[in-house]
Nucleic acid binder design. Structure first.
Length: 872
RNA sequence: GCCCGUGUAAUCCAACGGUAGAGAUAAGCGACUUAAAAUCGCUCCAGUGCGGGUUCGAAUCCCGCCACGGGCACCA
C-alpha cells in the first residue's frame, strides 16, 4: 500500500512550487540580449477585468505559457507579461446601477482575476503588469494621441452618433438593438451630428493591405479578413457638370466602361449638393425622405434585403461624354462616406441600380455585352446582340456597345480607354478607393482615457502640453447615465485656462475608444515601469516585434488592425524600428461544452438536471432534448469554472487537458472524462518516478553512457530520442500541443516497467528527458519530481534535451512490400540495404511468387528503408 | 451571394503522396481484491463526406458536388 507522501496531490504541491518560483524570481524578464534572435516575446491578448476568469482565458494563457516555457528551456531570454484592458462600459454600468466607483470596481476585479490567474502556474512577469485605466499608463496613451495630432493624423469632424432622446445620452452601436431602440430606455434612437475625433487610418490603408503579405506567420483567414475589411477598389472619379452654371457632381466608379449606360446620378441624402439640385416642386418630398433616412440605423441602411428607395431632386447634370441631361436623385443605398458620396446609376450593369431603376421606371440601357469568342480567331471577339429588356443586370466585363467611339472595346482595355479620354477632357481621373474608413475614437463616456485637448474660443482645439499629462479622470462624477458626456458635468475639472493664450477655455469632455488603449500595450510591456517615456527605443527594439501573439479570432480585424496602424505610424515617427507588431499569430479556438435544449420550448436545460446524458430528457416534460456543443456561457448553463477544476484535479491536469483535447486553433469540447484521463496520465508519471526513486535512480548529475549498450538500452534510448525529436518539432513554428502530449504518453509507456531492465545511465537519461519535456505542460509536477529525484535547481532552469541522432538509428528496418500499390507483405532487412538489393529481395519473396504468378513485373519502385512496389 | 476552414473508429483526435492509428475517451474481457474503487494487461470498432481525375501508390494533389462552422455582404 502506498504511503501518504507518495500520493500525487496537486493541491499542496502546486502552491508550494508557485511560491518557490516567486522566491527564485524565475518569471522575471532577463535583460535582453543585444542579439534580437536571442530574445523571445510571448504575448497573450490581455483580458478585460470582468472579475471572473473563464475557460477561454485559461486556454489562451496556457498556450502562451507553454510557448514561453519552451523558449526559456531552449535558452532564449523571454518576455511574458500580463495586464488589463481596464477601461470600458461594464465599470460605468456598475456605477450607474449600483453606485460603485468605476476605478474601485475595476481594481477589485483585477485583484480577483490576478489571483485566479496565478493558480494556473503561468510564468508571467508580474512586475510588468499594466492596467490601461491607471494614470501612469493612460498618460502615455494621451501622449501617443498627441503624436497623432502632431502628425496630422488626428482630426475633428462632424459625424453622426446614436442619441437616446430619453436618457439624453450617446449610445454605442452595440447598445442599440435591431429595432433601433436603446437597450436601457427603450426609446427610438436618433442620429445626431456631433464633432468627433478621428484617426486617419486611411492614410496607411495601402501599407496595411500590402504588408499583409509579410505576415506569413498569421493564419491566412485573418489576413483575408483584414484585406476584405480594408477593401481596396480600383476605378475612377468622373465629373458630371451642372446642366447650367459652374460646378459638377463627382462620382466614384469601378466600372468607367459603363459610362454610356448612365441613366441617372444618385447622391447620398446627406450629400452637400442636395439642396442645390432640389427644385421647388420637389422640396417637400426631398425633406421628408431625408428625415426618414435619418431615423434608420446604419445597420438597417446597409441591410441587403431592403428595397432601395429614393427621390428625384428635380435638377440634372450633363453626361460628360454625350452631353445629354441626366436627372439627379437621392437614395438610401448611397452612403455619404464612401467614395464621393455620389454614384452614377447604370441599371443594366449593376444589380442595385437595376432594382432601383425598375422601382422608379428609369431607363435601362445595355452598353456591355458578353464577349463571344469566334472559334479560330482567338483574339477577336464578336459582340452578342444586346437584349431589349434585360431581366437582370449583366455585371461582368464584356464588349462595349452603344458607347460611341468606344464600341467594340473589351474589359480592362475599355476601362482604360474611357479613363484616358476622361482625363484628356478634364472630366475624370483614375482613383483607388478603400472600404476602410477613418477611425472614430470619441466616446461620450466617463470610464475611458480623456482626450488631452483644450477647446479655446480664440485658439480652437489646443493640445494639452506634454508636461501637463496625464489629464486625469476626475473622481466623483455624476454617472446617472443621462445627459450626454459625463465629463461635461464635471465643472471644476472642465474649466481651465487655454495653454496657448491663457483665456478661459474648456477641456474636451469625450474619452477615447478603448481600442486606443489596447493598440500599444504590447510596446509598454517592453519598458513597463518607465516613468519618463511611453517606452524607450532600446527596449522596444530589443523585444519587438512580438514573436508569438496568442488570442481569440474575434479580434481578427479591429484590435489587430488598429495595432498594425499604430505600429506603422510610430515607425514612421522613429519611435519603433519594426513596422509590424506581431510576427506570429495564433488564434485559438473556442472552449465549448455540451448544452441541452428542449426543441419545443427552445429552453436550455442545465446538464446537471439531465439524468441520463446518453438519452437526454427534459426532467419536467420527459421530452427528448437536442444536444449541441456550444461556447460556454451562463445562459446555456454549460460553463465550467476553472477554479473548480483546479480544486479537483490541479492546474497541471487542467493545462494538460486543454492542450491535449484539440489542436490550439480548433474549438475544444469540454469533457470531464477526458480531464480525468489527463489526471490519470500525470499519476502514472508520478508512480513511474516513485518507482525510479525507490530503485535508487538519481538525477543529481548525468552519468556517462556505458560503452556497450544492450538491445533493451538501445530500444529505450530510441524511444527517448524519438520523443525529443517529435516534441521539438511539434513545438516549433506552428505549435501542436496535442501531438506533443501524445508523444509524452508514448515515452512514458515505453519507460513503464523497463527502467530496471536498462543500464542506470540510460534510465536516468530517460527520466531527465521525460521530465524536462513535460515541464512546459505540467510545470508543477515536473519540478516536484525533478526535485524528488535529486535534480539540481528548478527544472525550469534546465536545458531542452539534445537530440542524439545516433540513438535513432536502427540496425534493421521493416520494408513494406506492395503489389500495384497494395500492401502484400513485409521484409525485415538491415537498415543499410540499398535499392538494388531491396529489389532483389522483393522479387525473391513469397509475396512476389504469390502475386506475380511467374511474370516479371513491368515496373519496380523502391524507396530505401520504406517500401518496394511491384507493378505487374 | 462571395471568401475561408473542417469532414477519418461510438467519441475526441493522429498520419513528409508510401503499412489508415500515434495518443486518449467510452465500451467489453481478464488479473489484483472478501467486494468495490483505483491500478495493470488485453480486446472490439473506420477504409477516410460523395462522384470523378492525376499517380506505381491518394485521407493527403486536382476538378465537381454535399454537410457543418466562421467571416464578409447595398462600398458604387
Amino acid at each position: 500500500m502506498a504511503s501518504p507522501e507518495t500520493r500525487y496531490s496537486p493541491n499542496d504541491l502546486e502552491p508550494r512550487w508557485q511560491q518557490r518560483w516567486l522566491e527564485l524570481g524565475l518569471d522575471r524578464t532577463p535583460a535582453p540580449s543585444a542579439e534580437r534572435s536571442e530574445n523571445f516575446y510571448a504575448l497573450s491578448m490581455f483580458p478585460y477585468p470582468s472579475g471572473n476568469l473563464h475557460m477561454g482565458h485559461v486556454r489562451n494563457y496556457v498556450i502562451t505559457d507553454v510557448i514561453a516555457r519552451v523558449q526559456r528551456l531552449k535558452g532564449k531570454r523571454v518576455l511574458h507579461p500580463m495586464g488589463w484592458d481596464a477601461f470600458g462600459l461594464p465599470a460605468e454600468n456598475a456605477a450607474i446601477e449600483r453606485g460603485v466607483d468605476p476605478a474601485d470596481w475595476t481594481e477589485q476585479n483585477i485583484a480577483q482575476m490576478r489571483e485566479q490567474l496565478k493558480r494556473l502556474g503561468l510564468s508571467i512577469d508580474w512586475e510588468r503588469e499594466l492596467s490601461t485605466c491607471r494614470p501612469d499608463y493612460y498618460r502615455w496613451t494621451q501622449w501617443l494621441f498627441l503624436q497623432f495630432l502632431e502628425a496630422g493624423l488626428a482630426y475633428r469632424k462632424e459625424a453622426s452618433v446614436n442619441w437616446d432622446p430619453i436618457d439624453q445620452t450617446v449610445l454605442a452601436n452595440e447598445q442599440v438593438d435591431s429595432e433601433g431602440r436603446s437597450w436601457r430606455s427603450g426609446a427610438l434612437v436618433e442620429k445626431r451630428k456631433l464633432r468627433q475625433w478621428f484617426l486617419r487610418i486611411t492614410a496607411v490603408a495601402d501599407e496595411l493591405l500590402d504588408d499583409l503579405k509579410q505576415l506569413q506567420g498569421w493564419p491566412e483567414r485573418v489576413r483575408t479578413m483584414q484585406a476584405n475589411w480594408i477593401g481596396r477598389s480600383t476605378g475612377a472619379t468622373l465629373r458630371f457638370p451642372l446642366a447650367q452654371g459652374d460646378g459638377a457632381i463627382e462620382v466614384f466608379t469601378t466600372r468607367p466602361d459603363t459610362i454610356f449606360g448612365v441613366s441617372y446620378v444618385v447622391l447620398a441624402p446627406e450629400h452637400p449638393l442636395v439642396e442645390q439640385f432640389t427644385t421647388a416642386a420637389q422640396q417637400t418630398a426631398v425633406a421628408a425622405f431625408k428625415a426618414e433616412v435619418a431615423t434608420v440605423s446604419d445597420q438597417d441602411r446597409v441591410a441587403e434585403d431592403r428595397p432601395k428607395r429614393g427621390v428625384a431632386l428635380g435638377g440634372s447634370v450633363r453626361h460628360p461624354f454625350s452631353d445629354r441631361d441626366v436627372p439627379v436623385w437621392i437614395a438610401d443605398y448611397v452612403l455619404p462616406d464612401y467614395g464621393t458620396g455620389a454614384v452614377m446609376g447604370v441599371p443594366a450593369h449593376d444589380q442595385r441600380d437595376f432594382s432601383f431603376a425598375r422601382s422608379y421606371g428609369l431607363p435601362i440601357t445595355t452598353v456591355v455585352v458578353p464577349a463571344v469568342v469566334v472559334p479560330g480567331h482567338q483574339a477577336e471577339s464578336q459582340p452578342a446582340q444586346p437584349p431589349a429588356a434585360p431581366e437582370q443586370a449583366f455585371t461582368e466585363l464584356g464588349t462595349l456597345v452603344n458607347s460611341g467611339e468606344f464600341d467594340g472595346l473589351t474589359g480592362e482595355t475599355a476601362k482604360q480607354a474611357i479613363i484616358t479620354a476622361a482625363v484628356a477632357a478634364g472630366v475624370g481621373a483614375a482613383k483607388v478607393n478603400f472600404r476602410l474608413r477613418d477611425w472614430l475614437i470619441s466616446r461620450q463616456r466617463y470610464w475611458g482615457c480623456p482626450i488631452p485637448v483644450i477647446h479655446c474660443d480664440s485658439c480652437g482645439p489646443v493640445p494639452v502640453p506634454e508636461e501637463q499629462l496625464p489629464v486625469e479622470l476626475p473622481r466623483d462624477v455624476d454617472l446617472s447615465g443621462v445627459g450626454g458626456s459625463p465629463l461635461a458635468k464635471a465643472e471644476a475639472w472642465k474649466h481651465v485656462a487655454c495653454p496657448s493664450c491663457g483665456q478661459p477655455a474648456q477641456r474636451e469632455t469625450d474619452t477615447m475608444d478603448t481600442f486606443m488603449c489596447s493598440s500599444w500595450y504590447y510596446l509598454r510591456y517592453t519598458d513597463a515601469n518607465n516613468q519618463g517615456q511611453a517606452f524607450s527605443r532600446a527596449a522596444v527594439d530589443a523585444w519587438m516585434p512580438v514573436d508569438q501573439y496568442v488570442g481569440g479570432v474575434e479580434h481578427a480585424i479591429l484590435h489587430l488592425l488598429y495595432s498594425r496602424f499604430f505600429t506603422k505610424v510610430l515607425a514612421q515617427r522613429g519611435l519603433v524600428a519594426s513596422n509590424e507588431p506581431f510576427k506570429q499569430l495564433l488564434t485559438q479556438g473556442m472552449v465549448q461544452a455540451v448544452t441541452y435544449r428542449n426543441p419545443s420550448s427552445r429552453r436550455y436545460i442545465a446538464p446537471a438536471v439531465v439524468a441520463d446524458p446518453s438519452n437526454p430528457q427534459d426532467p419536467d416534460s420527459g421530452e427528448a432534448l437536442e444536444v449541441f456543443f456550444e461556447k460556454m456561457s451562463k445562459s446555456k448553463y454549460n460553463g465550467v469554472d476553472p477554479g473548480a477544476v483546479i480544486d479537483r484535479y490541479g492546474a497541471d491536469t487542467a493545462r494538460m487537458f486543454i492542450l491535449f483535447k484539440a489542436p490550439p486553433e480548433k474549438d475544444l469540447e469540454w469533457d470531464d472524462a477526458d480531464v480525468e484521463g489527463q489526471f490519470r496520465f500525470l499519476q502514472r508519471i508520478w508512480r513511474l518516478c516513485e518507482g525510479a526513486k525507490q530503485a535508487g535512480l538519481s538525477l543529481a548529475q548525468p552519468s556517462p553512457l556505458p560503452e556497450q549498450l544492450n538491445p533493451a538500452d538501445q530500444e529505450l534510448r530510441r524511444a527517448v530520442h524519438r520523443a525529443i525529436e517529435a516534441i521539438s518539432e511539434d513545438l516549433d513554428g506552428d505549435v501542436q500541443f496535442n501531438t506533443a502530449i501524445s508523444e509524452l504518453m508514448k515515452l512514458s509507456n515505453a519507460m513503464g516497467g523497463n527502467l530496471e531492465a536498462v543500464a542506470v545511465p540510460v534510465a536516468e537519461e530517460a527520466l531527465a528527458s521525460l521530465l524536462v519535456l513535460l515541464a512546459p505542460f505540467a510545470p508543477h509536477l515536473a519540478d516536484e519530481l525533478w526535485e524528488q529525484l535529486g535534480g539540481k535547481g528548478s527544472i525550469h532552469q534546465q536545458r531542452w534535451p539534445l537530440l542524439d541522432a545516433a540513438a535513432l538509428v536502427r540496425d534493421t528496418v521493416t520494408v513494406v512490400l506492395q503489389v500495384k500499390g497494395k500492401m502484400r507483405g513485409q521484409l525485415e532487412v538491415p537498415a543499410s540495404t540499398d535499392a538494388a538489393e531491396l529489389e532483389r529481395l522483393a522479387l525473391a519473396s513469397d509475396v512476389a511468387v504469390k502475386w506475380l504468378e511467374g511474370q516479371p513485373p513491368r515496373r519496380v519502385i523502391v524507396v530505401p528503408g520504406k517500401l518496394v512496389n511491384l507493378v505487374p
